[in-house]
Design a protein around this nucleic acid. Sequence first.
RNA 1: GGCGCCAUGGUGUAAUUGGUCAACACGCCGCCCUCUCAAGGCGGAGAGUUCGGGUUCGAUCCCCGAUGGCGCUACCA
Length: 501
Amino acid sequence: MEKKETRVRFAPSPTGLLHVGNARTALYNWLVARHTGGKFVLRIEDTDVERSREEHEKQLIEDLRWLGLDWDEGPEMGGPHGPYRQSERLEIYRKHTEQLLTEGKAYRCFCTAEELEAERQKAIVEHRPQVYSGKCRSIAKTNSDGRAAAGEPFAVRLRIPDKPLRFHDMVRGEVEFPNETVSDPILVRSSGIPVYNYVVTVDDALMEITHVIRGDDHISNTPKQVAIYEAFGWPVPEFAHLSTILGSDRERLSKRHGATSIASFREMGILPEALVNYLALLGWGAEGGTRETFTREELIKEFRLERVTASPAVFDFDKLHWLNRHYLKLSSPAHVLDLAWPYFAKRQWLPARDVADKQTVDWFGKLLTLFLPAVDRLEQLPEKAQFIFHFDAMAAKANEENTQILQSGSAQKVLGAFAGCVRAHHGVVTPELFKSWMNEVKSETGRKGKELFHPVRIALTGAHSGPEFDKLIPLFEEGSALALPEHVLSVRERIEQFIPA
RNA sequence: GGCGCCAUGGUGUAAUUGGUCAACACGCCGCCCUCUCAAGGCGGAGAGUUCGGGUUCGAUCCCCGAUGGCGCUACCA
């Protein structure tokens, strides 16, 4: 017999932003599809009309694209098992419910909310599992039909078979639930709207999904879903329940722990390849366990569901940042430049990218090579490079750390000598020239090392730490010749501001 | 309360799926480089595998129990 094609799916609800937990689920599904040469289906679970929004669906799709996870079937593009939005599949569910009802696999439940609540309370008091009593199970078909026809409200419940419900989970092995602990699940509400657990199963079966890979919050829904497959006589797929992603306090990761949406990571200047690599590592390890950085292609090759961990993982921002630095270094300078530009344009430090001249672009490229090693994320760049664009001599002098250095007589002498060199010269300051000045100042004042450099660094940058002067001097000089929204001060201009004559 | 899932340094994962000193990465600390910061290079500390039993010549690995964490317990998804 021919081996069946692997079909997996990602089925988000468009009720908010895509966040890391779901993104990791999407990634694992995608990796399985690409590893096996199967199909990746995107399905939108929008039966909750209250919370579902079209804009969220758009955002979701944008986020998946940004991560580089492409799908083979889905809304918009369609496919052989569509439609791919649950709101467009209501008629399919209705037909299937009818089938179950006529076959006696499901029954109408006329119990009221109050009755059910009373049952639940009683179960709690008696230390029993909270399961539906099955009161309406035995109502005769004709009786049930009559009551329904008379307009009495009812929900539709599935008749759970009288046997343990077990399924195979690729990350956890065999999972079994005793029959007494699972209720006859509601399939359709008295409002006529089918419930999530039901439609998910119908869709997965009809879309011929072979591997259901999802979060482990669905693990206790699975026995009910297995019963639905069996009621229809459908083959039960393989399951893989992914563990929860936790925050550093070991609680489920949420906004409380900081930004966790994919959109916010993008805004922060995390590269998609870094996020994909990190998410892959969160709950999976390659054979051998000595490698941590993987390209997309390598992940596809190495990833296997059997190696996914069952234990929950704590999200570590530090490690994500490390990976981001790694990929920032690997990326082409032109690509990083494109990504970094908007952060500066937004601050009005650079013109819009499309009107910038070549000199400005080249200059900014140099700036990036200088500051990129100092950041975890692109969004930190402007702050690091702030003194280039916006030099505030007064603030620099007022800074407490700086005053300690500046107040010494030694620093005064150094600065006086340095200012002398600067004022005696007209024209562009080259790194070579700067070096010779420093040597001059050195012999004139007898200062060296920190005592020599720190005061000058403060006068030029406003801080006693920062990138090498060799690279910094050209940035000042070339920047001052550019027509930028805010004029970049040259070495000379900085000294004039810092040490008025 | 019930049911289920999980448990290796601070964090994420390895460990020929019972076989000698528990490995790698992040983070941390130190050293080198250096005017400084970052990057980079080198080195170090940090777990005897949650605890208690059992099986075995031998358990991170298998079984039982306890503890803890998490999830589900809706006519939410």
